[in-house]
Design a protein around this nucleic acid. Structure first.
Lengths: 151, 151
DNA sequence: TATTGTTATACTCTATAACTATA
DNA sequence: TATAGTTATAGAGTATAACAATA
């Protein structure tokens, strides 16, 4: 039986993008009231509950450029959710950390993330959810060892 | 044993976004030479090989607003990859279709998509890839937002 | 009045590249 | 010279809302 055109061009990336965009889009609406964007949430999540990380590390962990991290960080600082901290040992370096306001926000954001997950993935069995999560993490882990870092 | 913070805030949406962004980002670089963006590819894929669809349907299938479709379509028309066609039965309506240039581009884009998939998912077994694809499609299908090509 | 699509506007995300300060 | 971070600039993607034409 011949494959049809749609099947020929059926790629994982396409479906990943569809699902990711919808999940993130819906989550973005949920956290709008708290004045936090999805990238900001990912950023804050890396600093919770009390981590101090340099912008360069955030850039690596979120696959952003350093310029992108600066821009995101500027906005979050303006909102009072994170703070910069000078490094006394190296005048070039700095550390980013959550403010108490930012730290207090994280559990609220996490609760909304839980709600969002329920909305999108409750049709999957517990076993299917575990599989999906494991496959995604396995992909990221493998990329971490092979991917070309952004400059 | 108490969960630690990282575990508490471990959401599917986060990992989906990480993987999707990296896969799409890498694919974007690959198709840059052909002067096509990832959303444009998704758009063209829906019209291949010879479909005629109204903007409203594209908007539904790609989860975009009508305004977004107009903007994307404008750019693709400027590039000569798609064309607008008036609907003689309804003066408000129109149809979008690939030009011969656009249609010729699709197999090239698909080949690059194949290459990208290999890069990102060859660490998964055939069975794991099938599982991942099935779980993603099941999620989209349940949401009822996109027409799933039946295979 | 309702629907299809366009236009105007705005903001987020992300990139590249030049720049500053420090090492 | 190399590194950490910032700034300037740009463009893509997406949304909302007002609008025009048609039904």
């Amino acid at each position: 039986m011949p494959k049809d055109a749609a099947e020929l061009y059926d790629h994982m990336g396409y479906w990943l993008r569809q699902v990711s965009n919808q999940v993130s889009g819906s989550f973005a609406q949920k956290i709008e009231n708290l004045d936090v964007s999805v990238p900001e949430w990912a950023f804050m999540r890396l600093l919770y509950p009390a981590a101090r990380k340099p912008p360069s590390q955030i850039a690596t962990e979120l696959s952003l450029t350093r310029g992108g991290v600066t821009k995101l960080a500027d906005r979050m600082i303006a909102k009072g959710n994170i703070a910069r901290e000078d490094n006394p040992e190296d005048g070039r370096a700095q550390m980013l950390k959550l403010t108490s306001k930012g730290a207090a926000l994280v559990p609220k954001l996490a609760a909304l993330a839980d709600k969002n997950e329920l909305e999108f993935f409750s049709h999957l069995s517990a076993r299917e959810k575990e599989q999906l999560m494991a496959l995604l993490k396995k992909t990221v882990t493998t990329l971490g060892t092979t991917a070309v870092p952004l400059s």
